[in-house]
Every structure is written in structure tokens, then in C-alpha cells.
């Protein structure tokens, strides 16, 4: 599956991927669900038109049952800028039923020498989204998903992942020091380079303070040895409007600590959907 993705997006082998897709495959990217041969082909064409040929310089795959999280790091052949393209696939090993994909679009703009506004304009209009307002408080009901309640985890991993989740879901910033290794390499959306746990503290705080009534919802957790993938989103009110930021996170663990994190969100697609948001500004 990874080879098909690599050959398709780096070399333009559209057929390699087309052979893996069903008539009913749904590909969610840039906040749009794409269906059907024509739309699915256009995803690859648009990438190639923007990026040209490129090299895959790193990859990471996390697999559990029929779910696969895969990140491919593409390097632009002229500018040498790296772009993370993260996929969350449902596959039976032969064909792909669904894909949720996140591109680090600010990095794509940088790599291709476009300003972000131009690239944003080129993205498709987002699907209509109604976020019904809701009470984000739990009121001691135990109704909120945490990693250990939606995934079968051993006790140590449950404790580690629940602590990691508390950083976003309960603003428990102090957990950063306990769950991340002191030398952890962390790649966050909108940051060109890897950061450390102190930068992560600032990043989380900045996002959460821009939102009132913030709420983090866990969608899926995959565990593959010492690697974990998490699909989740952050909702919150920003100047009275409810916004939603979908995220994909991949964690590499060692000796009970997070050694490496890659969190991807499509910032420019988010800006296109919520043009008045300042979530990722500054």
C-alpha cells in the first residue's frame, strides 16, 4: 500500500493507486470528501500539478487490523523543502475503502514558492459543515473518550496515552514533562522545523487560549508495537463561531516515553473553511 502511495504521489503512477481503490472509496482531504473515479484522480493530478515530481525522504507506517496510518515526507526537488502528507487508511490489504489525508499545506506553499493565499485559493471549497452546539463538560458522567476506553491497551501504554490525551483534552500542560522524553523530536502543524517539549507547551497553550469552550474528541487509536497513531479533532468557539480542527498524530515511544511526534493538520484548508479564524496565526 505504501509503495502504491509513494509511486503515485512521487512519480505520477496514477494507475498504481487506482488499482487499489473501490468504486465506493471515500477520500477525505482539504475538508472535502471525494468519491468516484474522476474526483479521486483529480486529487493526485492536483498534487502533481502543484508539486511536480518529488522524492520521498522518509516514511512511517502504523498498522492495526484494517486501519493504517502512514506518513510520507516528500522533498521538493528544487527547493529541498520537506512536506508531510499523512494518510489514515482503511484497507483489507488488497483495496482501500477510505482515506483521510492531511497535507502540511503551509510547507507545500513554501516548497513550491507560492504564497499561502494563492495556494488556499486553489484548494477546493470545503464541504458544508454544521457543528451542532453542545455541552462540552462531562458533568462527572464519564462519557468522554480517552485512549484507554476506546482501544485495548496494556496498563503502561494506557497510562501514557491517557496522560498524553490530557494535555489536549484537559489542558494538563504539566503532563508534557512526564510523557515526553527530554530530547523528544516533535513536529507540529505550521512549524517548519522540529521543536522540543518546551515549544510544545507554548503551541498547545496558544491553540487552547484562542478557543473558548474548547473540546478535544478522540476518534481512533492505532497501536503497532512502540508506535501509536491517533485520529482526533479539536472543537472550540472563536469569536462566537464554533470551529473544528481535525488532526492526525503519530507517536514513537521508547522506554515508556514519547521520543518522536508528528502531528499533521491541513492549516490552509482550515483557513479556507474558517476564514475569520486566527487559530494558526502568529
Amino acid at each position: 500500500m505504501l509503495t502504491a502511495l509513494t509511486n503515485t504521489f512521487a512519480k505520477g503512477d496514477i494507475q498504481a493507486l487506482a488499482n487499489k481503490l473501490l468504486h465506493s472509496t471515500c477520500w477525505q482531504q482539504h475538508n472535502v470528501k471525494h468519491y468516484g473515479e474522476d474526483q479521486l484522480r483529480s486529487i493526485v493530478q492536483n498534487w502533481l500539478a502543484t508539486m511536480g515530481r518529488s522524492d520521498v525522504v522518509a516514511s512511517q507506517v502504523i498498522k492495526q487490523d484494517s486501519q493504517i496510518a502512514a506518513n510520507l515526507t516528500f522533498r521538493h526537488t528544487t527547493t529541498n523543502v520537506d512536506i508531510n502528507y499523512t494518510f489514515w487508511l482503511e484497507s483489507n490489504g488488497e483495496v482501500i475503502k477510505s482515506i483521510v489525508a492531511m497535507i502540511d499545506t503551509p510547507a507545500l506553499a513554501l516548497a513550491t514558492g507560492q504564497d499561502e493565499a494563492t495556494l488556499t485559493q486553489m484548494l477546493p471549497d470545503a464541504d458544508a459543515l454544521i457543528i451542532a452546539d453542545y455541552d462540552q463538560q462531562d458533568h462527572l458522567q464519564g462519557e468522554l473518550a480517552i485512549p484507554s476506553t476506546i482501544s485495548a491497551l496494556n496498563a503502561d501504554l494506557a497510562s501514557l496515552l491517557d496522560s498524553w490525551w490530557s494535555i489536549w483534552s484537559k489542558n494538563q500542560l504539566a503532563a508534557i514533562d512526564t510523557v515526553y522524553d527530554a530530547n523528544a523530536a516533535i513536529k507540529l502543524p505550521g512549524n517548519e522545523t522540529q521543536v522540543n517539549s518546551s515549544d510544545l507547551f507554548d503551541f498547545v497553550l496558544a491553540r487552547l487560549t484562542r478557543l473558548s469552550r474548547a473540546f478535544a474528541q478522540l476518534e481512533q487509536v492505532l497501536v503497532d508495537g512502540e508506535q501509536v497513531a491517533i485520529k482526533w479533532y479539536l472543537d472550540g468557539d472563536e469569536n462566537g463561531q464554533r470551529v473544528r480542527v481535525p488532526m492526525l498524530t503519530m507517536l514513537s515511544l521508547e522506554q515508556g516515553k514519547i521520543q518522536q511526534e508528528l502531528t499533521t493538520t491541513d492549516i490552509l484548508a482550515f483557513q479556507k473553511r474558517f476564514p475569520h479564524s486566527s487559530m494558526f496565526q502568529g
Binding site: D127, A128, L129, I130, I131, A132, D133, Y134, D135, Q136, D138, Q141, E143, L144, A145, F215, Q217, L218, E219, Y233, D235
Partner: peptide
């Protein structure tokens, strides 16, 4: 209409709305 939610609080919101 594009209403999407995951998790108990969000789903409650869909029904209440």
C-alpha cells in the same frame, strides 16, 4: 446539511439542535 459529530457530547448536540 453537513452535520457531523463524533463522541457523546457532539451527538447529543446533533439531537438537541
Amino acid at each position: 446539511g453537513g452535520t457531523e459529530a463524533s463522541g457523546i457530547p457532539g451527538i447529543k448536540g446533533v439531537f438537541i439542535r
